[in-house]
Every structure is written in structure tokens, then in C-alpha cells.
């Protein structure tokens, strides 16, 4: 097995040089997919027979919720890579992804609340999914607060790695306990995100939007990581050449 591809990721310079092209491709993909998905979902997809047009919020709520969860998983994976293989780039990825994940969680929560108004008649219902999203937001805030509080860059990254690994182990427990709590207290609420059978015309734009959100996340993450790499390597010659070339 050839491991050079893995070792390359240890070099910030290699990452910076390569990621420019990836960023451009991802940004274009994200823009095209998000635009296509929005137009398709808002204007072309048929309306839901039960919820009418308010169901169109699904095209941002579900992708954002997906991403919020997988981003937290990514934090933990980056944390393991950073702790086990001491890869600096994984540390950078962890700290750069947390604010993006928090904003995705915020979007999912907010659209869920707005969606709740026409469906349930109130802005907020302690529904299992919304509640676990709220807890996820608090988990993200914890990681961000910890990374801001520790001044030493390496210890901050390691501490965040430990915290996000502990959080990921807890996340399924939290999810199941919240669902259980919810079934005990509200036996029969109408669940917005549980669709028995979505027809193809409704489902395809959702898929496009999910893909678009993932590309968007990857592009924004790369943008943040590139800046962070420049800051961390500010004393090296290649960063200096890059700065002089850009300025």
C-alpha cells in the first residue's frame, strides 16, 4: 500500500497550493446546485396535499439539518486524526468547521420554527427533532467557546478534539433519550419531517439541495482553512511570497 497520498496532507504548503483549484470547483458546483434546487423546489415542484406550499421550507430545513449532524461527526473524525496522527491540517479543519456547523444548525432550527407556525400554529413546539437540534447547537457553542478560551493553538485544537469525541459518543444517547421523552409527553403530534412517501417530483429537488449544501459546506470550509493555514505558517517563505503576490 502506498501511503504518500496520506503524508501529503501533512504539508500545509501542498494543501494551500492544491486547495485553490478545489475551492473554485466546489464553489461553482455549490452555486449551480443551490440555484437549481431553489428554483426547482420553490417554483416547479408540486405543492403538498396536506401542508400546501409551506412544505417548500423542507428544501432548506432538511439539508441544513443533515449537514449540521454530519458536520459534528466530521469534527470528531478530524479530532481523532489530529490526536492519533498529530496532523496539523486536521486540527485546522476541526476549528474551522465548528462555526459553519453552528450556522447550519441555526438555519435548521430557525426554518423548523418558521415551518411550525403554519403546521402546528405556534412558533416553537418541543418536538423531538427540533429539541435535539437545539442541543446540537449548544454542543457546537461549547466547542467554539473552548477553542476561543485556550490561547495556545495546539492545546486548543486537542481540547476541542477531546470534547467533540465525547460529544459524538453522547449524541446518539441524547437523540434517543430526547425521542423517548417526546413520545412520553406528546403522544400524537404531527411530525413535519416524517414523510410517508414523497413523490419523485418533490424528492429530486431535495436531493439537489442536499448535494448543493454539502458542496457549499466544503467550499466555505476550504476558504476558512486556507486563511488559517496562512496565519499559522506566516513566518515561512512560501506564505510571504503568496502575500506579496496577492497584495
Amino acid at each position: 500500500m502506498n501511503w504518500t497520498w496520506f503524508h501529503k496532507w501533512g504539508s500545509p504548503k501542498w494543501f494551500y497550493e492544491m486547495s485553490g483549484a478545489w475551492l473554485r470547483a466546489l464553489a461553482w458546483a455549490a452555486a449551480v446546485l443551490l440555484l437549481l434546487g431553489t428554483v426547482w423546489g420553490l417554483a416547479i415542484a408540486p405543492q403538498d396535499y396536506q401542508q400546501g406550499n409551506s412544505f417548500r421550507i423542507i428544501y432548506i430545513h432538511v439539508p441544513a439539518a443533515f449537514l449540521a449532524q454530519s458536520c459534528y461527526l466530521m469534527l470528531a473524525v478530524a479530532g481523532v486524526i489530529g490526536l492519533v496522527w498529530k496532523m496539523k491540517l486536521a486540527d485546522v479543519a476541526l476549528q474551522c468547521a465548528a462555526p459553519i456547523g453552528a450556522s447550519m444548525t441555526f438555519i435548521a432550527l430557525l426554518t423548523g420554527a418558521v415551518w411550525g407556525k403554519p403546521t402546528w400554529g405556534t412558533w416553537w413546539v418541543w418536538d423531538a427533532r427540533l429539541t435535539s437540534m437545539l442541543i446540537l447547537l449548544f454542543l457546537y457553542f461549547g466547542v467554539i467557546a473552548l477553542s476561543q478560551a485556550i490561547s495556545n493553538r495546539d492545546s486548543a485544537a486537542k481540547a476541542c478534539a477531546v470534547l467533540s469525541i465525547v460529544g459524538v459518543i453522547n449524541l446518539p444517547i441524547i437523540k434517543y433519550s430526547v425521542e423517548w421523552w417526546n413520545t412520553l409527553h406528546q403522544p400524537a403530534t404531527f411530525k413535519i419531517t416524517e414523510k410517508p412517501a414523497m413523490p419523485m417530483e418533490m424528492w429530486l429537488p431535495l436531493l439537489v439541495m442536499v448535494l448543493g449544501f454539502y458542496c457549499f459546506f466544503a467550499a466555505v470550509l476550504l476558504m476558512r482553512m486556507r486563511l488559517e493555514v496562512l496565519k499559522r505558517e506566516s513566518r515561512t517563505r512560501w506564505v510571504r511570497a503568496e502575500v506579496e503576490g496577492r497584495a
Binding site: 420553490l42 400546501g52 406550499n53 417548500r56 421550507i57 432548506i60 426554518t111 418558521v114 476558504m223 476558512r224
Partner: peptide, 29 residues
Amino acid sequence: FIAMGGHGPYVWLSYGISAVVLGLNVLLP
């Protein structure tokens, strides 16, 4: 299309705020 069958405010509010949050995510870096 704007009225969204009476659900316009909700749909546009959530799309609008999401667009702002996504835009900030791009703009700030």
C-alpha cells in the same frame, strides 16, 4: 408564486434568513 397559497410570509422568511446566514458564511472568510 409570491403568495405561496397564503403561506408566503413563512416560506420567504425562512428562505430569506437562510440566504443571509449562508451569505455571511461566504462573506466573512
